[in-house]
Design a protein around this nucleic acid. Structure first.
Lengths: 248, 248
DNA sequence: TAGCAATTATCAATAATTATCACTGTTGTA
DNA sequence: TACAACAGTGATAATTATTGATAATTGCTA
């Protein structure tokens, strides 16, 4: 039997039964233990199986759950972000219809939201999960889940978003400058942020101080269209153009 | 029996019964007390169980995240579900536009889906995350995330679903009988399942053999409208009425 | 507190794994 | 053809992991 053939059979057997012992494979495939072991090693290195003492099992996908992913980003400038998130969360009232953007700072807001009757719409999966767990009414924006499994973006999401009208929108950003306004890395993301802003009575952009002076690829909003919630803002020009709330 | 296999069975037993005694496990799994104790210790260290004097219980997680939740359900009738899921996944071709229902058996399908060009729409968050991680194109159905943070259901989800037309839909069920057809516990869920079926060229209902003869609160589909993929089906009447694929 | 069951700690036996080495058959080259 | 280089295989011995049994300790219940 060809090596490849044998390895395919091993995969097949593991798929069907979920796990298999080395001894079982030697007798079914009529190969020596050494050969089977070598096969298992090769398959395990390719990530196709999970090698365990005595045999092999299906690989358990590490589901990175969303929070782990996000937590990495959250750690940067944590203190500032906490202050920003906490203040932003305090703006939410029971009668609000809130858009909550995907992203790490807005995610921190979910820690400061309790017992509210407000209704949330979000394109962040982690955001939705946490809020739902806290008993909030949460709607997830429909649309495409891109390779990063954190945010729902794209055309379909944009269309869905058009249907909503929010009283408040909380939006993240990558950069803020006087000229280019609010910018982000990706057109799909920008589209969502722009539409959310347009469809909200008030919109707040959350930004720690490192975001000022940075220009990312795509502008999604002119400066004057949103209030900014930040830890501190050194630019008098920006302060002249729009409302800036400094929380530190 | 593989160590891992034995530990999975322990988890299965605990999630079904809520707790278990050491002595019970030694006789069911035919292992010595020492081995069982070592297993319990290992599982407790992973936080999968709560070790108590005399045995073990379900851990009181404050938050079980989605995957844990689903994994508990997945463990029941695992072997049958695997066979069902594996067969169902094999039906997906590159040119398919697939609806994947939320639920534990359909979730297992994601383990058997590789390198496909098929496009998926799902109302299960975990399902979407895993498929996206595998590089599939995945759309999440927009709508309300109910207290269980696992599935997107409700009116908005139903409306969104209306827009799609699938080539294949894979749907879970709580019960199957000749008279009431396919039934589930909740009207919101039933609505999604019904619409998905109507908007798909072919629909498959996935059910392990324990579902036959069970009637849940809400019918979402007559028997003859779907093919059934199951481990085995003893009812000749059901087989007369619709296509039944027995995978074991 | 006594009595009993359950737990932990330890050790020997067993099973599985790894690391080598020798054998086979294939390929390319002189 | 003869030969070397090589990949794949099987066998063996040394190492390591897992297991079951036992004794010592701990925790429960009356």
């Amino acid at each position: 039997m060809l090596t490849q053939e044998r390895r395919n059979k091993i995969l097949e057997i593991i798929s069907e039964k979920g796990s298999v012992a080395v001894g079982e494979l030697t007798s079914v495939l009529e190969a020596s233990e050494a050969t089977i072991r070598r096969d298992l090693l090769a398959l395990a290195n390719l990530g196709k199986i999970n090698k365990v003492h005595g045999g092999a099992t299906l690989p358990e996908h590490e589901f990175l759950n969303k929070e782990d992913n996000i937590n990495v980003k959250v750690r940067k400038n944590l203190e500032q972000k906490r202050a920003i998130a906490s203040y932003a969360a305090s703006l939410i009232n029971d009668d609000d219809y809130v858009f909550l953007d995907a992203g790490s700072t807005t995610f921190l807001m979910t820690e400061y939201i309790f017992n509210t009757k407000a209704v949330f719409v979000t394109n962040g999966i982690a955001h939705a999960q946490v809020l739902a767990q806290k008993g909030c009414r949460v709607f997830i924006l429909g649309g495409e889940l891109k390779d990063t499994t954190e945010a729902i973006i794209g055309i379909v999401a944009a269309q869905n978003l058009q249907k909503y009208n929010f009283s408040k929108a909380f939006i993240g950003t990558n950069g803020i400058t006087e000229k280019q306004g609010f910018t982000t890395t990706d057109t799909d993301e920008a589209m969502i942020k722009a539409i959310a802003g347009e469809h909200s009575f008030v919109s707040y952009v959350l930004a720690d101080s490192t975001k000022f002076g940075i220009v990312s690829a795509v502008s999604f909003k002119p400066l004057e269209s949103s209030a900014i919630i930040c830890d501190k803002c050194d630019s008098e020009e920006i302060k002249k153009k729009t409302i800036v709330k400094e929380v530190l």
